[in-house]
Simulated assay, not measured.
Amino acid sequence: MVMKEPTTEQQFLAFTSLYRVSPYYQFAHFTANQAIIEAFEKDQETNNNRALHVIDFNVSYGFQWPSLIQSLSQSGKRVSLRLTGYGRSLEELQETEARLVSFAKGFCNLVFEFQGLLRSSPKLIINQREKKNETVAVNLVFHLSNFMEMSQTLKSVHSLKPSIVILVEQEGNPRVRNFLSRLMESLHYFAAMFDSLDDCLPQESTERLSIERNHLGKEIKAMINSENLDEENKGTWKNMMERHGFGGMKLSSKCLMQAKLLLKVRTHNYSPLPCEGENTNGGFRVFQRDEGKALSLGWQDRCLLTVSAWQCV
């Protein structure tokens, strides 16, 4: 039996449900935002910057940015946030802009500007206008694995000389060239993702079924069908970033503490029959990696996604 492709509305509802009940996307977004805020605060101290420009290569529904808007406004000082977001469709970009503009209106000391661009837009990021005393941050969240011209993307990003580049990638490893190996990697990764829902929703939940069918199901199809990468783009993301002139930045203790707090808040443990001695605080874990330059969210002992921060060297 061939399952129907979920509608746009079904995909949105499934994503929204997963975002609300699981720490998966929130871990990525909150960790990324904390690192961006710290880079901006550093520029405020050294260069008196009062404006932040974030270039998001996969803005999607824009769920990452309300928490950043809220955090920026807490300083009480007048601050400007310019968000350039690349999206899949004009309709999605317009809906994302409407949500973010409406949210930002609630913060009187924040000047918010959104520019939406299609991923296929001929307008290169290298043409992004620069403003005086503006911190530039680049957000590569779940982006590079879906982008065949990764080398050119990173070259363009490097030319902007951003204060920080955030990289978030799944650990399912679609970079494996052999189909069978890629299938096995995907199998283990998504098995962990499905199991992790035990910490989020009861097994009989219709909301859980929606997530499994309309979000994870689509992700499985995309990962298995991902095209092989050429020789230039083989290897780890760390190697790729370093080849293109980026060096890793150590993530702060605030990033780690925030991630651990998130897991405490988001742990429900709906597993029906926990075994004796089993950890009843849930199976999600935070792992520090690469000498503190990366944070990973894991389920049990398997990493699901990794957040790292980079700067031009």
Rank of each mutant, 00 (worst) to 15 (best):
I126G: 07
N146I: 08
S17T: 12
G283V: 07
N109Y: 05
M240H: 12
T135H: 10
T206L: 15
S17M: 05
V111E: 05
F12A: 08
M3R: 03
V307E: 09
N33P: 00
Q300D: 14
E92C: 04
N48L: 13
I211F: 13
E92T: 04
R182L: 09
K250P: 06
V141K: 02
E185P: 06
S253Q: 07
S102L: 13
T236R: 13
Q70A: 10
G87Y: 14
Q115D: 06
V59D: 10
G298S: 06
W237T: 12
A28N: 02
Q34K: 14
V54A: 07
T46G: 03
V286M: 03
P23G: 13
S120F: 14
M1Y: 05
G298K: 04
E91H: 09
P6G: 04
S296H: 09
T206Y: 13
H29S: 11
A192Q: 04
Y270I: 00
E95R: 15
L304Q: 05
N279F: 08
R20G: 11
R182H: 11
A51Q: 10
E291V: 07
H268Y: 04
F63Y: 08
S252E: 12
N109Q: 09
N173W: 06
M150H: 06
T135K: 05
H143F: 03
V165C: 00
L262R: 06
E212I: 15
D230R: 10
A32C: 02
P66F: 00
L297N: 14
L201T: 09
E41Y: 11
S145Q: 08
F179V: 11
Q258R: 08
F142Y: 07
N146R: 04
L262P: 03
C108P: 01
R266Y: 03
F112I: 11
T267L: 00
L167P: 02
F147T: 07
S205L: 14
R82S: 02
N139Y: 02
N48F: 14
H268F: 03
Q74F: 14
I164H: 04
L13I: 14
L110Y: 14
R213P: 15
A32S: 00
T84E: 06
M249A: 09
S205C: 12
H215W: 14
R302Y: 01
R129H: 05
L295M: 13
A51R: 01
A309N: 10
P23E: 11
I37T: 00
M240S: 11
I69C: 06
R289C: 14
V141S: 03
R243V: 05
S145V: 01
L305C: 15
E231I: 15
A32F: 00
E9R: 13
K132N: 06
V165L: 01
T16L: 15
H29T: 10
F12H: 11
G217V: 05
S181G: 08
E276T: 09
G277I: 05
R50P: 03
E97Q: 09
E207I: 15
K254Q: 08
I164Y: 00
K293F: 03
M148F: 12
L273G: 13
K264Y: 00
E38D: 09
H244T: 02
M241Q: 02
D290K: 11
P6T: 08
S89C: 03
N228C: 09
E9W: 09
E291L: 15
K42M: 12
K218V: 15
T236L: 02
E130C: 07
Y86K: 10
L68P: 13
K250G: 04
F284R: 03
